[in-house]
C-alpha cells in the first residue's frame, strides 16, 4: 500500500520534480488564496490569470516554448494589468472587478491570437494546461523562489494586509500603508499565478490557489487556522493528483485541480465548520 504511494516518486525523477514544484506552489499560493477569498476576489484572480497569457505569448513568440521567457513575459503582463486595473479602480467610478474584467478579456483575446498566429495547437495546449511533468531546474528554482518571496512578504505585510481587508477606510485614515499594501498583494497574486502557470497552465493556474483556500473555510475559523489548513489541503491535492495521473495515465494538471475540487466537496459536506452533513444532526440551542 505504502509502496503504491511512494514508488512513483522513488522510481522517477520527473515525478519527484513535479512533486517538489507542487509543494512549492502549494506553500505559497494557498495562503494568498485565503486572502483572495476573504477579500471576495476569487473570481478576480481567475480573471488575472488570463491576463498573464499575452505576456507569455510574447515570450513564446520570442523564444519558443521556453519557460523562463514565457514566465518573464507573463509576469510583466500580469503586473501591468494588475497595476492598471488597480489604478483605474482607485481613481474612477469603476470597481476593481469591472476594470479588471475589461483588461483580462482584452488580454486573453490578444494572447490566443498571438499564439495561434505562430505556434501549433499543441503549443497552445501546453500554454493553456501547463507541463507539470516536465519541470526543469529553472522552473523549480522559479517556483521555490516564488514561494519564498510570498511567505516572506506575507509575514512582513501581515498586519496592514489584514487591516486593508477588514477596514480599508480605516487604514487609509491612519497612514499611507493602504495603497502600497494593496499593490503588494496584487503583485503576490500575479507572482503566484505565474508560478501556477508554469505548472498547471493559464487556465488552471488558480486551481491550487483557490480551491484549497475555499475548502479551508470548512475546517478553520480564523486566519491562523485558515492558512495552514489551506496549505495542507493543497499539498494533499498535489500528491493525490500526481498519483492518480501516474496510475491512470491522465493529464497531470487537471488531475491535481480535480483532486483539489474533490477535497472541496468533501470539506463542504464533512467540514466541522458549517459542513452540510452537520446540519442534518439536530442540536438544541444553547442557553446564552
Amino acid at each position: 500500500m505504502i509502496d503504491l504511494l511512494t514508488a512513483p516518486f522513488l522510481e522517477f525523477a520527473f515525478m519527484r520534480r513535479a512533486l517538489a514544484g507542487c509543494v512549492a506552489l502549494s506553500v505559497g499560493a494557498a495562503p494568498v488564496g485565503v486572502f483572495l477569498t476573504l477579500r471576495r476576489m476569487s473570481l478576480m484572480s481567475e480573471a488575472m490569470s488570463h491576463a498573464i497569457l499575452p505576456g507569455a505569448a510574447v515570450g513564446f513568440l520570442w523564444a519558443g516554448l521556453s519557460l523562463p521567457a514565457m514566465t518573464l513575459g507573463g509576469l510583466v503582463a500580469g503586473l501591468a494589468v494588475a497595476l492598471l486595473s488597480g489604478f483605474i479602480a482607485r481613481s474612477t467610478v469603476l470597481r476593481e472587478d469591472a476594470s479588471l474584467a475589461a483588461f483580462y478579456l482584452m488580454s486573453l483575446a490578444a494572447g490566443v491570437l498571438l499564439i495561434s498566429a505562430r505556434g501549433s495547437s499543441i503549443d497552445l495546449l501546453h500554454i493553456l494546461f501547463g507541463t507539470v511533468l516536465a519541470l526543469d531546474d529553472d522552473a523549480l528554482v522559479l517556483l521555490g523562489g516564488i514561494a519564498t518571496v510570498t511567505l516572506a512578504t506575507l509575514a512582513i505585510a501581515y498586519r496592514p494586509l489584514v487591516m486593508e481587508c477588514v477596514d480599508p477606510l480605516f487604514l487609509r485614515s491612519v497612514g499611507r500603508a493602504s495603497g502600497p499594501v494593496h499593490y503588494c498583494f496584487l503583485a503576490l497574486v500575479v507572482l503566484n499565478l505565474v508560478g501556477g502557470f508554469a505548472a498547471l497552465g493559464t487556465l488552471l493556474a488558480v486551481g491550487l490557489m483557490l480551491l484549497p483556500a475555499i475548502s479551508a473555510r470548512f475546517w478553520a475559523l480564523d486566519l491562523t487556522g485558515l492558512m495552514p489548513a489551506a496549505v495542507i489541503l493543497a499539498l494533499a491535492a498535489s500528491v493525490a493528483g500526481l498519483l492518480v495521473s501516474y496510475y491512470a495515465s491522465l493529464p497531470t494538471g487537471p488531475a491535481i485541480v480535480l483532486a483539489a475540487g474533490l477535497l472541496y466537496v468533501v470539506s463542504m459536506l464533512l467540514g466541522p465548520r458549517g459542513g452540510l452533513v452537520w446540519r442534518l444532526i439536530p442540536a438544541r440551542h444553547l442557553e446564552a
Partner: peptide, 9 residues
C-alpha cells in the same frame, strides 16, 4: 464603516 464583518477576526 467599511468594516467587512465576514472577515474572521
Amino acid at each position: 464603516a467599511e468594516v467587512d464583518r465576514s472577515f474572521p477576526i
